[in-house]
Design a protein around this nucleic acid. Sequence first.
DNA 1: ATTTTAAGTTAGGTATGGCTAAATTAATAC
DNA 2: GTATTAATTTAGCCATACCTAACTTAAAAT
Lengths: 221, 221
Amino acid sequence: MEKPVLSESQEDYLKEIFKLREMNVTVSMQDLAKKLDVRPPSVTGMIKKLCSMDLVEHEPYKGVQLTETGEKIAIEVLRHHRLLELYLAKHLNYSWDEIHDEAERLEHVISEKFEAAIAELMDHPTHDPHGDPIPSVELEFPDSPDLTPLTTCKTGRMMTIKRVMTQDKDILNLLTRLELTIGNIITIKGTESAGIRLKVSDNQYLIPHTIAKLIWCHEDN
Amino acid sequence: MEKPVLSESQEDYLKEIFKLREMNVTVSMQDLAKKLDVRPPSVTGMIKKLCSMDLVEHEPYKGVQLTETGEKIAIEVLRHHRLLELYLAKHLNYSWDEIHDEAERLEHVISEKFEAAIAELMDHPTHDPHGDPIPSVELEFPDSPDLTPLTTCKTGRMMTIKRVMTQDKDILNLLTRLELTIGNIITIKGTESAGIRLKVSDNQYLIPHTIAKLIWCHEDN
DNA sequence: ATTTTAAGTTAGGTATGGCTAAATTAATAC
DNA sequence: GTATTAATTTAGCCATACCTAACTTAAAAT
Ligand SMILES: [Mn+2]
Ligand SMILES: [Mn+2]
Ligand SMILES: [Mn+2]
Ligand SMILES: [Mn+2]
């Protein structure tokens, strides 16, 4: 099983399959089409090709799965992406709503040397600016503590924001203004029908469920 | 004349035309084919397209020229390339024989934000690690003093190496070993049929003409 | 058990950017 | 001036990665 040279599209397909698999049990063609912003027939076609390259397995009408080789490549791309995001934020003064798009293009183009250089420079970080885990050079994920989405946090608890599950610029921008950023500490005031009421610094907000469910926290020690 | 969105190939064509124009009076299809590592018919085809986009002008069997818009884009790509080369060398510890290939791919992919960030970080540099001039944001070239190729330097003179006109890894590597790098001072010992005899630091070498003609110098103070 | 709907696939088409082989044009040599 | 050679273009192909429209399969609803 040698590592073939893949196109940018193919790398994105593999990466997206990997990310979807983390959430759903099964990855449908439609899910992929939506995430990759292409029409379903294009997905069918590409999956066929990736199948023939032994990078994915596909039971028609069932779902797609990565092979071992496919998964390795997916994780490599993910590592590029997340290292780049952190690098852009830490060394080139990007804000966290600007890093994703740039990393999405750069991830396919940087060499292993570039990857190693920025990893070294940042002292082999384990998490990117959204709190997403960065796989190691050996493609292993750091073990992270159990996180709870804001929607299911218990009233009265103090929690630290550990991960924000979106790349949407507007949401990220909003969260910055509300000081709901990685590492910040919040106190849950209560769950209401419209959302979660919480306190950050000296301010109190009601965060709509749609946004709250993107924010994952860890209970403070 | 609006700036169209160009493919990576198209950007490379424009950049290469610009660079060739700096050397030759006229840019032939063959020159381009050689530089871009493509067969002549591909060049004809692409030039036709760039023509229809008003980025180049082409008199069949005569030569190619950039239009004003085409030249602007070419210089922008060149700026990306050279800023990147310097950035890789200065901030990611690349040696000067490693920077070109990486920059060749990155140049098409970085955003204006990225460009601005690294330019700022390096305090708006005017020359890359090969001594090539870096155009400003306004796309103007820094004025540089008259340089002489090593092949025509006068015996006895002390000169500073200011520019090395190649991206060939083996040559660059060789020059590093010989301490013939940008900024270093040499003394011309004489011209022989096989090459130029010169002194760097405490060593004396005979540099073959093929290599000597790539090294451009400036007479010391 | 049929019908309806949603998901996925097939067929056939487009644009891009390459290629080879053959034809044409221009330049050079005799 | 004609013949040779070199440069360029034309014609016709190929692969990639998309697309729409039409068809098929599976699942859900009545
Ligand atoms: Mn991508
Ligand atoms: Mn991220
Ligand atoms: Mn390039
Ligand atoms: Mn350079």
